[in-house]
Nucleic acid binder design. Structure first.
Lengths: 338, 338
DNA sequence: GGGAATATATGAAACGTTACATAAAAAGAA
DNA sequence: TTCTTTTTATGTAACGTTTCATATATTCCC
C-alpha cells in the first residue's frame, strides 16, 4: 500500500518506470541516459505529475539558487525599481529572490542577514543603514550605495558626477543662484557625494549656492519655512534647486507652487534618481537618472561571478540628465538629451 | 580530522557538548531539556557559531515557511505597496516571501506557479492576468483582484463602492458633467467594477457622464486627443474626471495642464489606489484609497489559516476617499475627511 | 564467437534535520 | 534497600535528492 496524499518522489517515478533511482535523477538533470530509459522515465514523470523537491536538492548540494535582497521597503520608487531589476537579473541566471524589507532598521537588517545565512541563500545583495552590520566571511555579499569594508564590493551610481551634472545643467539653463536640499541620514554612504559633486559643479560654473540639510529628526515642514525665508517681495532668491532625490523634489515643487512660485518659470528644479510614474519617459521631474538596470545587473554579476580575479571594492556607474518638465531646457522636436 | 571549511551541523554541536543529537535538536527548538544539558548545548552552539540549516528542516517537515508573491512588477506604486505590506504580514507569522515579478505575462505566471510548487513553498498569493492559470489543488492559493474559481479565495477592495464614492464626491464638489477614463485590459477582474460603480453613482446623483476606455494596444496619446476634442472655446466640457488609477490620473493631470486647464479650478480629478509619494498623507491626487495593509493581512490570514470553516470565494474590503489637491473640496483646518 | 574494452544502469551512502522507540536515570512507595 | 513509576536522554530511521563505486549490458576487434 503506497501513501496516497503526499507528492510523488523520485522513488515513485523509478518504481513506475521500472528503473533505478539514479536513472531518474539523470533524466531530471539532463544527463546522458539511454533513449528507451529516458522515454519510460519521462512518461512516468508525466503520469505521476512528479516535481523535483528543491529543498532536498538544496540540502544535498548546499546550493539553493536563492539570493536575498535587503532593502528598506518597496514603496519608495527607487527601491521598488531596484527590486524589480535585480529580480530580473537573477532570473536570467536561474536564481530566485527572497525579498527582505528592513524599514531601515538596524536590528531588522542584522536579523535578515542572520536569517539569510540560516537559509543558506547563495548570497545577499543589501542596501542597508546599519553601520555595524556583521556579515560572515563566507557569505557572498554585495552592497549598494554603501561601502561595507574592503572585502565587500559596493555598487553605486556615480553620485559625484551626478551632482556636478545637476549644477552644470542648472547653469546651462540660466540659473545664477541655486540651492541644494537634502533630507536625513548622517551615514557615510555613496549618495552623500551628490552634495560634494554639486558643490564642485557650482564652483566650476561660478554659481552662487547654498545648502539646506535636514537632520534625521527634523520635521519636513522646515523646508517650507526655509523657502519662505528666501522669498523677497514674492520672489524667491533662488532660481534653481537641486534636490537629493526625486521624491524630495516632488514635495518641494508642491511647496513652491503653494508659495506662488512657478516651476520652471520662476525656479527650476532638478531631482535625482530618475523616477517615472507611468510610461517610458514620463519623469516626475527633471532629474539625474540612476542606471538602475545596470546597477542591478552589476550586483548580480559581482555576487555570482565565480572566477573574478579580484572583487572590486567600489563600482560607480554613469548617470544621465533627463528632462521632466521642471527645468527651462528648450525642448527640441527630437526629444530629451542625455 | 574534522572537515574544516563547511558550516557546523547539529552533529558537531552534539560532539562538542558531549550530548546526543536529539538533545541538540530539542534545545534548538525550545523543547524541555535538563538545565545542565541545555547549558552545555548553548555554549557549544555559541562556540561553533552553529546555525540551523532550514533546508534540512524544510525537507523533513515539508514546510518551508516561505510564501511566493506573484505580482506584475514592483515599479507600479500600488504593487510595490502590496509587496511591502504582504511581506510585513508574512513576517509577523514568521514566514518569508519569495518575490515573483511576472510582467503580466501569462507564460511567466504559469512558470512561477510551477516553480513555486517545486520549491514546495507553503502557499502562493497571486495578482495575475493569465485567464488559464493552472493551480494544483493541493497548493494553497489566494488571489488578489481576480476570481480564480470557487475554490480559491479572492481578496480585493470594494471597487464598486469606490466607483460610487468617486461619483458622489465629484457631485458633492459641484461637478455636473463628468468622465471616466480607463486604460487597457479586457480581463474580467475586480477593478473593472469601478466603472460600474461610478456609473451607478452618477445615475444616483444625476450626473452627466461619459466613458473613454482605451484598449490594450491603443496609444496613450488617444487620451490627449480625446480631451482636446472635448475642449470648446478653451473650456473643457467636463468639470470632473474619474481615472481608474492614480497613475492614470497623474498623467491626465499633466495633459490637462498642458491643454491650459487648471486642476482643480476648471476640472476636478479623482484617481484610484491611494498612491503617496513621500510622507504620510501626501497623496498624488485626490483619490479612492485602497486598504492595502488590510488586503495584505487578509491574504496572509486566508492563506495560512488552518482551521477556517470555509474559504470565502470573495472578500471585499472598504475603500475611502482622500483629498490630494485635485478636487475643490473645502479643506478644513483639521484636515482630510475619509 | 569469445574476450577485452567501453558504455550505461544500479543501488547504497550521504546531506542535516526531526521523531519515535528504547534505554538510562531519577524519584517515590513499600 | 528494592521495586515500580515517572522523567529525561539516546540513537536510529526517515525526509528526497545526488554521487560514486559496482554491476551489467553493449560494442569492437581478432
Amino acid at each position: 500500500m503506497k501513501k496516497e496524499s503526499s507528492a510523488p518522489t523520485m522513488k515513485d517515478v523509478a518504481r513506475e518506470a521500472g528503473v533505478a533511482l539514479g536513472t531518474v535523477s539523470k533524466v531530471v538533470n539532463g544527463l546522458p541516459v539511454g533513449d528507451s530509459y529516458r522515454q519510460r522515465v519521462e512518461d512516468a514523470i508525466k503520469k505521476l505529475n512528479y516535481q523535483v523537491n528543491s529543498y532536498a536538492q538544496g540540502l544535498k548540494a548546499s546550493k539553493t539558487y536563492t539570493v536575498a535582497l535587503l532593502i528598506p521597503n518597496t514603496q519608495m520608487p527607487f527601491f521598488a525599481s531596484l527590486a524589480y531589476h535585480i529580480n530580473l537579473a537573477l532570473l536570467r541566471r536561474k536564481y530566485r529572490m527572497l525579498l527582505c524589507c528592513t524599514d531601515s532598521d538596524s536590528a531588522q537588517e542584522q536579523e535578515y542577514v542572520t536569517m539569510a545565512q540560516q537559509n543558506k541563500v547563495d548570497g545577499i545583495i543589501g542596501l542597508t543603514y546599519n553601520p555595524n552590520l556583521i556579515i560572515e566571511e563566507n557569505t557572498p555579499y554585495v552592497a549598494i550605495d554603501r561601502s561595507m569594508g574592503p572585502k565587500i564590493p559596493c555598487v553605486a551610481s556615480d553620485n559625484f558626477a551626478g551632482g556636478q551634472l545637476a549644477a552644470e545643467k542648472l547653469a546651462e539653463f540660466g540659473c545664477r543662484n541655486v540651492a541644494f536640499l537634502r533630507i536625513g541620514s548622517s551615514l557615510n554612504n555613496e549618495p552623500n557625494k551628490r552634495k560634494a559633486g554639486f558643490e564642485n559643479g557650482c564652483l566650476a560654473r561660478g554659481l552662487q549656492y547654498e545648502m539646506k540639510i535636514l537632520n534625521d529628526g527634523d520635521s519636513f515642514d522646515e523646508f517650507e519655512a526655509y523657502l519662505k525665508e528666501h522669498i523677497d517681495n514674492g520672489n524667491l532668491t533662488f532660481d534653481g534647486i537641486f534636490c537629493v532625490t526625486d521624491g524630495l523634489a516632488y514635495s518641494i515643487i508642491k511647496i513652491l507652487r503653494r508659495l506662488g512660485q512657478r516651476v520652471p518659470e520662476d525656479v527650476q528644479v532638478i531631482g535625482f534618481d530618475g523616477i517615472r510614474y507611468f510610461g517610458e519617459k514620463d519623469y516626475v521631474c527633471s532629474t539625474i537618472v540612476q542606471p538602475v538596470s545596470e546597477i542591478a545587473k552589476m550586483c548580480v554579476e559581482l555576487l555570482l561571478q565565480e572566477n573574478m580575479p579580484i572583487k572590486p571594492p567600489l563600482v560607480c556607474l554613469p548617470v544621465a540628465y533627463a528632462y521632466g518638465g521642471t527645468t527651462r531646457e528648450t525642448q527640441t522636436a527630437n526629444g530629451q538629451k542625455g
